[in-house]
Nucleic acid binder design. Sequence first.
RNA 1: GCCCCCAUUGUCUAGUGGCCUAGGACGUGGCCCUCUCAAGGCCAAAACGGGGGUUCGAAACCCCCUGGGGGCACCA
Length: 496
Amino acid sequence: MPSSPPARARFAPSPTGRFHIGGARTALYDYLLAHQTGGQFILRIEDTDQKRFDPNAERELMDSLRWLGIEWDEGPDVGGPCAPYRQSERKAIYQRHASELVKRGHAYPCFCSSDRLAQMRQEQQKRKQSPRYDGTCRDLAPSAAQARIDAGEPHVVRFKTPRDGQTTAVDLIRGPITVENVNLDDYILLKSDGLALYHLAAMADDREMRITHVLRSAEWLPTFPLHVLIYQALEWPQPVWVHLSVFLNPSGKGKMSKRHAAEAKGGVASIFPLDMRDEGYLPEAVVNWLALMGWSYDDHTELFPMNDLVDKFSLDKLTPSPAAVNFTKLDHFNGLYIRGLSDADLARRVQPFFAQAGLKTDPARLEQIAPLIRERIRTLQESVEIAGFFFRDDVRPADELLPGKGLSPAQAAVAARRALQIIEASAVFDDALEASLRSLAEELGLSAGEVFGLLRLAVTGQPVSPPLLESMRIIGKPTVQARIADVAARLESLAA
RNA sequence: GCCCCCAUUGUCUAGUGGCCUAGGACGUGGCCCUCUCAAGGCCAAAACGGGGGUUCGAAACCCCCUGGGGGCACCA
């Protein structure tokens, strides 16, 4: 891999709602780029919109990123050389740049009220025109404008977009994008309360924070030329621009949404990393899955733990086309990573899910169980369903499950009694016991599966479980005997 | 309505003019293994949206169409 100069990449979310996988993937790419080049990954909070501010959002986004293993080098909580890292605390910086723009003749104060603007927009749309600022304040004499400002008249600052010519903006994965300047608007840079809008704030911060690569959502493509124009007006060198395509719903129809994603998987899929954590997905699986939605390495490798990702990631292998999220593929990766866990690690990770279900576990027993469930669970959560019986003492198969598949009550009762005798006579639950049980089945004219199935029901309470002998060994002889005896008695009264 | 982006199996993708009879993965179907369920192994079906060019040769380059997506706020 050719070594590149250290990159400074920033992830700049706005804390306005729950944190979803779209943001996580952008942050992941930022992180990979920074780590690969020995640069920095910066977290910046874009909270200039006080109206949409959600006090819980910042916490969730930080928790999500940390859970995924995407740690930042500079940010609001860890500080850094370019602090502060919250836009609401950087107001003065934006005002300075706005004044500079006005001074250079690239921006102007605008006194039009939002009411008038809204009305204007409505009329334009009625006439099937593009909604655009009509330029009322664009050519006000600077002295006249200053007089109105001095008089305390509320105003915003707008960018003075050229009326003719065209602007070319270069995106790394899409190449040059050229637009006619008439199709751009005189966008507002500074609100009447003095706070900056994204267009100014993000540009100023990226400049001040010496960002070398801007990775952001493709939703910014329409205003990309404006951003380039702002850089040009201030004579700033441009960063590398990379617009990441949005995620689509699993159906491929429309931008990914919470509701549509959930519907696609029977109402259980979530697009939020923290929900994934609670459902029993491993962060390494989510990262691997996310990395591959929009990036690839070669024509066959798909297993990429974080350290490989740092090593192999490259911007030129990013795809420009939008990707539909595929939750079944996440399940696949989760299974893959679960199977790669050691007994101790699996036991440790699964423990909270048992606790959540109200089951008391102990580490030693969980570690015994780990090899039995590792290949049978897609999520950590599923371990409770498949192995909860190891920790319950009220294990009893439901009435409708008895007498067991393919058996009459009388047959089942006899089989249970005979099996109980064999088990009582066994010092250890080994291969010899299995062989005895098999010959019992043969003697009774039953299949081994029928006998094992019946015992499985008695011992685990469920028709599907980890392998029977191994499970019995962990549960212990006294409990196994008690459970089989109980079922035998129920079967006998059923047969009577 | 206007502007912008995108286009290979159901989905994620490989493909940078001849290595393509289009590769890998998920999912799907079948078989094997098997005490259930998994896991694992093997096999199979499944794609270059359409039309024009350019070229000795196009999945790849250009144009048009179509389809899909995004955007048009004193949100980000």
